[in-house]
Structure formats: structure tokens, C-alpha cells
Design a protein around this nucleic acid. Structure first.
Lengths: 194, 194, 194, 194
DNA sequence: CAATAATCGAGACGGTACGTCTCGTCTTCTT
DNA sequence: AAGAAGACGAGACGTACCGTCTCGATTATTG
């Protein structure tokens, strides 16, 4: 059945090649050295095909993020039943991930992109920190009374993620206890067994 | 007496003109559109004079930050004796500052610069959040027992500042209670008398 | 009865719209800025319809010339019985025509097209100078003995037309006596009774 | 001694390389396929260096003409004392030159350039026909009474050259007698010994 | 009267070149 | 030396057209 449009339909293969190339280039050359010409060449596509569908580099990156091409495995929190433990584990994984200079540069690059482009910004906390899953985990912590009912869940997530990002931006190497200390600050110090 | 070097000494006037021009251009055109040629023209200086003394744009910005040319008034926290209140006030001022789209863009620009340049990154939390003063304020809070003695002061500052930056990057408009909620999130809920 | 071909016949309306658009664009934008896309848009036709029937821009222009769409009125010589006078009048009209900058540009454009495309070249002298009529006029001059029987009629036409074109190309403004001098140059000086 | 200007002086080597490359490309690829990028690559120069000094392709060609880089040997008329003979010889050489398809294309290309650019146009008749030398030859013919004193010398040159150009543009192959016939037309038929 | 074949408008596509912008280096003259 | 002026090679920008191609819709012809 007709779709109301005429002319050749958009080439899905080209679209994916472009997004994949965007991810490749973003990872290898970082945001500041990302070029549309490079992406076009890498994707085997003409520049015009890129400009026809995406207004800016940022839009490309944002879409590559949506397609899940930027990060290999999303860093999502677990749910073992112990909120404090789950948060520490998640943060530790994040810090560990960023201990590899390549990954740290990738995150920094993503922050740079987010700073210059709203589309990327909108997806930043989701992409870096799996924010929505994290929020869900915290809300489940409220149900198990590990968190008081009026805890500002979103703000807690922003604080944890923000602390991570500030560390990345200020280039302060992360010490071992950082994750625990941050969670302590946010949930209050660990009870009894401490 | 001679300083052991020959030839004309460095022109301090030119140095300041360059840094001032850097600040002007940074504020008006943002980091992504900052050009060395533009700075040179604005400062009435040749490009070579810039390249002779600064290796990168980031170094220029970092030095302009040190000279206090980027932000009009530093947003420092007060000390009224009530820590929680002082923090909320400070955060509110920050959010208020960023409510002006021009300032928000300025902060975003600074984050972009920090992401791409270590010199700027090192000074980011100081410049945006007056981090050292804030740390001092928190430490004085420990003395007045408003904070437990082992509170992770630096991490708390990172969390507060980071939450602010995450908000800026994700372009989420700030609602009225944000500052209070954030302090609650990071220090735990306000005690009894609330 | 069938013509041996199946499918929809060529759309004559589209053909004329294309040629008319070619003429419009040629006149307003000149040969160097003539684009197939512009013609297609102007004619309300798809590019493919143009490429299906004409191999090059030159072919389009040549056909527009044949259809008489490029020049409003062909500049044909008269026959008053006085050959020399008729030639001077004709040349004067030509010079007068080209005195309007718009027309001069049009002729130059046509020369450019002729230089780059054989189809246009073939029709150049006919289109600019009504060459065949001019040759006929000269041959009638032989019959009235105003011209010697072995006069190289075609070469004379080429010389007159060529001189005009050289003037156009070299951008030399035409003075009043030019037409007369040129006829003198090509036919030899006027005889006795002058 | 100072010349009043500061900054590096124009690089003469680059200038010549560019003009030489222009000539090369013009000869091998013709005007319509001449590209600034190609010239820059051929000359080993950046595009900006070209655009800094020449506003258009036409200006490049015009300057290459002035430097005598476009035509190997200028086609200048001789002076044997016999005007008619010298003109026929000159025209014959011209026709002979253009009989090689490569040269014909070169002349056509030059006409195209002249049609689209005034700088080239100004130099066309000089470059193709050595117009000034030809005019001088005709004036010397007046002194020897081979030409009447009031002969329109410039117009005669335009007519001869124009006839040549029209032949080139209309792609009419040149027959053997063409040169003689044209000169006959212009000087009147040859006297006695014919 | 279905199957076939050609036309047409629309528009996506890989390419090439455009003319501009900025980079970081360099060369010259002046202070 | 340091500095102003500015030329230079390099390379990316975003745009304009090229000529080809794929669509779906619309005619005609033919078996």
C-alpha cells in the first residue's frame, strides 16, 4: 500500500553505515576531531546523504547513542536486594570503566558533545549512567524501606552521576574508596556492621 | 641588571589584551566558535604572539580563568552558622545564575572546554563552584558537628557541583525546590526540627 | 493503428515546458549558471524526463534555438536593392541590439555554449546572424552586379558575423561608424559615386 | 630597504607554479573542466593561495595568457613586403594550426573563457591572432600603398580573425582556398597576374 | 481485459567541486 | 628577542549540481 510519498525511499543500509561510522570515528578520534567528511568516507556515503538527514554532528551522535552504538555494554545497576551494595557496585564499575584512559576519553568526549548539542545532552545521563534503570532501582529501594519514602530519587541519581562526571572532567584519579564514600554520603553512613 | 635573556621582554600589555579578548570571545561566541584568529584580531595582536606563549586554546582559557576574567562575580558560599541553609542558598544562587540562558550557555561552554582540555578541567570546579571555599565551609560544618567527622567532604562537593552540571548538560529546567532536594540528597534528610 | 511502440507516448507539453524553461534560464542566468535542476524545477518536470530525451545542456539549448525561443525577433537583413546599404543597416541593428548589456550578455552566453557544444555551434551563425538569409541577400547582390560573380559569399558572411562576435568578446564598445567601416573592410571601399 | 609592507612577501615561485598549472590544465582538460582544485593540486599549492590572488578562473587564464604560457609559439604575421601574401600565409598558418583537433579545442576553449570572463576577452584577439602585430603589418601596407590610406585597419583584423573564430565555432572544416578567398574579399581580388 | 512496456514526477544517492574558514607555521620588517 | 603583518599548505566546512537510480502512478499497446 502507498505511503503517500514518492521517489526512492530512504536507504536504511546507508543510514546504519553512517551511524556505525559515526560511532567508530567518535571512539577512535573523539568528538573534537570528528569530521563529517571522515564519517562519509568511512561509511562509503556522500556527504550530502548525511546532510540530507542530520543537521549537525550532534544529531548524528545522538542517534548513534539511541541505536546503542557508542557503548559496548550499558553500565546498568543490579538488583541483589541490597540497595547500598548495588549502588556501590554500579559506581565501582563506572569508575573501573573510566580507569582505562580510552574509556575516560570517550566519556569526556561525550560530555563535550553534550555541552555543544542538546540532543546529545538529553541522552547523556541515560547513556553514561543508565539513569532510568538507576531511578527504578532506587524506587524499589523505597519499597523495601532501604530509602525513606520522600527521598529525592532523581536528584540522588544526578548527584552520583554528577560526581562521576566532575571527577572525569577534573582529571582527578579515582581512589578505591570513592564509590563507597559517595554512597555513604547519599544514603547516610552504613548502619551497625561498620 | 640583566636577566640573562636578550631581546625585548615579554609585552605584559599584549598578554592581558589577549586574555581579555579570549574572555570576550568565549562569552560572546562560546567555546566551539572560539578562534585564535578572532582573539588575535580582537586583541590587536599577531597570531604568532599567541602561539609563542600558549600552546592551545585551552591554555588561553585556563589562564583567563585564573585571571578571573571569565566570571564576573565568583559564586561563593556564605557562612551564617547554618550549614544546610548556606548550601541551599549557594546552590540556589547557582541555579538562578544559570536560569539566564546566556549564563547557562557560558557554563556549558566551560564544560566543553574542560572536556577537551586538561588545564581547563583542573580549574573547572573551582571556577564554576568555588570548590575550595565550599570545602572549607563543609569542614567548618564538621567542627560545629553539623556534619559527622568522617564525612567525605570532597565527594560531597563533587556531588553537588556534578548534579548542577548534569542539569545544565541535560537541559532540564530547574524547579524551585531543586536546591533543597539536592542538599537533602547529598547530606541526608534534614534532622528532626523539620 | 499501432506505431510499434508500447507504453505512454512522449509528453509534448513537457517537452515544450522544458525548452521554454531552458530559454528562460538561459536568458536570465546565462549559460555558465544554467543548471538542469533549475530547468527541471522551472518546467515543473523531473530531471529524468530531461535526461531521457537530451544528452547534454547543449542539446537543450540547440533545440530551444531551433524552436526560436532564444531570440525574440530574428535579425534578418532587408532587400532594398542597395546591397551595401542593406548590409550596413543589418550590422547596425546587430550592434544596436548588443548595446543593451542584457543582449550583449546573451550573445556572449550563446558563444560560450557554441564553444562547448557542437550542436549549438552548428546553429550559431544562423541564430545570431540569420546567416542563410544573409547569404541569399549577397547572392542576389551578385545578380545585380553589386558584387563580382566569384565573390566568396560564405566567407564574407563569416567575416561580418565574426567581426561582430570578436567585438562582443573583446568588450570593445561599438562606435557609430563601425557598421559602415566593417562593410567597407569586407566589401572593399564604396565605389566612385560616394 | 623597506617597502612599507610587513609580513611575508608574495611567493613568486608559487605564483608561477599556479599559472603553469593553469596552462597545463587548460590545455589538457579544456576550460569547462578546469577546476581550481585541480590547479592547486597540480601546482602543489593550497586553494587559499589561489583565491588570495585571483578572484576567478578567468583571471588565472588571463594572467597565464599574459605570461605566454597558453600558446607555444605566437602566430604572428611576417613582413615580406607583399601584404597580400603575408596575410594569406598568416591565415593559412592559423587554419593549419586549428586543423589539429587538439588545437581547435584549445581555441574553442579560449573563446569559451573569453565569453565568460572580460579579462580573457580583452586578450583574446591578441592571443589568438597577434592582433597588434597584424594591425602594424596592415599599417605598413598603407605606407607601401598596397592598402588605401583610409582602410579601416582594425576592422579588417576583426573581420579576418572573426571569420576564423566563426569557422571554429561552427565546426566547419576549413577548405584549402579559405585563406585566399578571405584575403581577396578584404583586399579586393588579386590584380593582373591572376 | 489482463499483461506488458514505456512515460512521468519525486526524490534519494555517490560524486565532484565550489568558495570560505581556521589551523599552526613561516617569513619579513619594525621596535 | 618580541611583535605586527600577513603569506602559506593543509584540511574541513556546508552547499550546489551532476548524472544515475528507484519508487509509485499513469497511459498506451498487445496478445
Amino acid at each position: 500500500m502507498a505511503n503517500g510519498r514518492r521517489g526512492a525511499p530512504r536507504n536504511e543500509e546507508a543510514r546504519l553505515a553512517i551511524l556505525q561510522a559515526t560511532a567508530n570515528q567518535f571512539i577512535t578520534r573523539h568528538y573534537e576531531h570528528l569530521t563529517v567528511e571522515g564519517i562519509a568516507a568511512d561509511a562509503g556515503v556522500s556527504k550530502q546523504t548525511i546532510y540530507r538527514w542530520w543537521p549537525t554532528k550532534g544529531a548524528l551522535i545522538a542517534e548513534a547513542m539511541i541505536e546503542g552504538l557508542l557503548f559496548a555494554e550499558p553500565l546498568t545497576p543490579l538488583d541483589t536486594g541490597d540497595l547500598r551494595h548495588d549502588l556501590v557496585t554500579w559506581l565501582d564499575t563506572l569508575f573501573e570503566f573510566a580507569r582505562d584512559e580510552r574509556n575516560e576519553a570517550l566519556v569526556r568526549s561525550l560530555v563535550a558533545a553534550a555541552a555543544e548539542n542538546a540532543d546529545v545532552g538529553l541522552r547523556l545521563s541515560e547513556s553514561v549512567g543508565a539513569a532510568s534503570t538507576l531511578i527504578a532501582r532506587l524506587e524499589s529501594g523505597i519499597e523495601t524501606s532501604e530509602l525513606r519514602p520522600d527521598a529525592p530519587v532523581t536528584d540522588i541519581v544526578n548527584a552520583l552521576l554528577g560526581a562521576f562526571i566532575v571527577r572525569i572532567l577534573t582529571r582527578i584519579p579515582t581512589d578505591v574508596g570513592a564509590a563507597t564514600r559517595l554512597v555513604d554520603a547519599v544514603l547516610g553512613p552504613a548502619p551497625a556492621s561498620r
